[in-house]
């Protein structure tokens, strides 16, 4: 794959960010039910490493909409992790595999965000207190992590095949 961003890549990035934002807003009333994971996986399978650029753009839009806070730091390392994982396993075509990957990612989302929470709120000499607060923060979010896991798993299970079909078609048309 070419290392430079082509016009097609830029168009894909635009599509990805627009889809992620639209789906996020449309599903905002359901806590932790999201299509962001699905789209990031799908665009990674389509674009490879170049999909990493989607994250900072989407985070910049989110930050300008909701105001930046510690979640910006979390997003900037948690979402790229999903892209790295997806790219590593890109040759896999089993629906259940992708549903599981997405589900595990949802389940560990809170745990993955906790280090940033701890580091952000720690002060000199109070690292232990921040660690305890971080643990409590993660535990308090577990029900949402479980919802996230089940949501991600089900969404990927249902949508992987049709979207892969559409993506493949997109690739054929654009060549």
């Amino acid at each position: 794959m070419d290392k430079k961003f082509s016009i097609k890549d830029i168009a894909y990035i635009g599509m990805a960010v627009a889809l992620i934002e639209t789906c996020k807003m449309a599903l905002a009333f359901l806590p932790n039910i999201e299509l962001t994971s699905l789209w990031l996986v799908m665009f990674t399978l389509l674009m490879g490493w170049k999909a990493l650029i989607i994250v900072p753009i989407f985070v910049a839009i989110e930050a300008s909409l909701y105001g930046p806070h510690v979640w910006v730091i979390m997003y900037l390392y948690v979402w790229p992790l999903l892209i790295i994982l997806s790219h590593t396993f890109r040759k896999n075509t089993n629906v259940l595999f992708w549903a599981l990957l997405s589900g595990f990612f949802g389940l560990f989302f809170g745990a993955l965000c906790t280090p940033a929470q701890v580091i952000f709120f720690t002060k000199p000499d109070t690292f232990n207190a921040a660690l305890k607060a971080g643990f409590a923060w993660w535990v308090a979010g577990i029900p949402y992590d479980v919802v996230h896991a089940i949501g991600n798993f089900s969404i990927m299970l249902v949508l992987y095949t049709p979207i892969q079909f559409a993506v493949n078609k997109l690739e054929t048309i654009s060549h």
């Binding site: 535990v139 308090a140 577990i142 479980v146």
Partner: peptide, 29 residues
Amino acid sequence: KKTRNLLIGLGAFVALIVIALIVFNMYKP
């Protein structure tokens, strides 16, 4: 083998969800 691994993965997924919920019940705010 692949199918078996995926089923193990599915089992681990369900087990981890249950463990997470148990942890939550033990330490919930």
